[in-house]
Design a protein around this nucleic acid. Structure first.
Lengths: 192, 192
DNA sequence: GTAGGCTCTTAATGTAGATTAAGAAAAGTA
DNA sequence: TACTTTTCTTAATCTACATTAAGAGCCTAC
């Protein structure tokens, strides 16, 4: 079974016909690293589900500094939720970090699917709930933990990623400069 | 119409019978300021909807420092989403800041309502999506803005609250100490 | 009314992490 | 192969914010 159907089946069960219908509303695309799937200022038209590879969402503030909102590896969803639900221009970029196979589900098709398979309301509600919980936790962590502790949490959450992506991306995710991250890392290594 | 039905009607429409059914599954309670509705370590059994008054959710880390996750004024929902959906002990407190009238919806009744009025899946999906967007924005703000700028954002988001709650609560929400907040405020006043 | 909490302020000192700058390593490209 | 670009490191200096401490205004409660 395709990864995206497996993902859905974690929370609801679809009949074979419903599964077919669902897949018929999606498109699979292959993207090279560094491809930008969504630019700041654009209206987000899709939810993205990662079959393989790595994506990230981030914004850029006035000072030309990037901040990573989230990474998405195999089996994760990613989009600009604000722009997707409001259909207004957002301020997030979505970029491919490692060559990726991605399932695209357009906003329109998603809305159609809600009426054709109401159970999907439940699935996306649960998906969103889980995202919200993870985000709230990260927010509390950013208020109360040191950079070192936030790095630990990152390693727990994305165990495979540490080796695969440039470490400046990790620095950006935990909210420190690459220079400080480098210093912190060598300090961690020195103290075994 | 009751505030909670007005809130629901922003996103879906319920028949009079459905409205009655919904209300029959809720309880209205009155709480004095300083009442703790949920303690850290407890399993969260309810979603809370605020008719009047002010609530906050917060956690306490090792150092005995509080961090406010959210405030809830008239017309807002609040709960410990992690504990509510997992039914495991959470680490949030929910406390009444100003005498409040609160609608309680138990987890069980909420699940029953999902089967009896499937449209409610849609309502809570949309509610959760909006929460997620607000949370993501706050996370990005905490990564990229100064304390002063985060205070500005707070004032936009909760315009009525600045006058009503102790300013140490605001300091805790934006992630600085009460001492620094006080200094920052007087600096802002000096520079009109 | 005054005693004991809370809350807010001010000030001295300390520190996590930013900034700036420069070079070294690594990786893509031709 | 060398050439360019990106990433990582190290070090000096700087700053936003924390910590500690002490006193002042304030509620609310006997």
């Amino acid at each position: 079974m395709s990864p995206i159907l497996l993902n859905i089946n974690k929370h609801i069960s679809l009949s074979p016909e419903e599964q077919q219908l669902f897949l018929s509303k999606t498109e699979v695309h292959h993207f090279k690293a560094k491809t930008i799937l969504l630019n700041s200022g654009q209206v987000c038209k899709h939810s993205y589900f990662v079959n393989s590879g790595t994506l990230r969402s981030f914004n850029i503030n006035d000072n030309i500094v990037e901040h990573v909102l989230s990474f998405a590896c195999d089996g994760w969803w990613i989009s600009d939720m604000y722009s997707l639900i409001s259909q207004k221009p957002g301020n997030l970029f979505i970029e491919v970090l490692e060559d990726a196979e991605v399932v695209l589900l357009s906003k329109e098709n998603q809305e159609q699917l809600y009426t054709e398979i109401p159970k999907l309301e439940r699935f996306f509600r649960i998906l969103t709930e889980n995202s919200l919980v993870a985000n709230q936790q990260r927010l509390m962590d950013s208020l109360s933990l040191s950079a070192e502790e936030r790095f630990e949490k990152f390693c727990e959450k994305y165990p495979t990623l540490t080796q695969k992506i440039p470490q400046k991306q990790i620095a950006s995710y935990i909210g420190v400069t690459p220079e400080f991250f480098s210093k912190m890392k060598s300090r961690l290594l020195r103290n075994q």
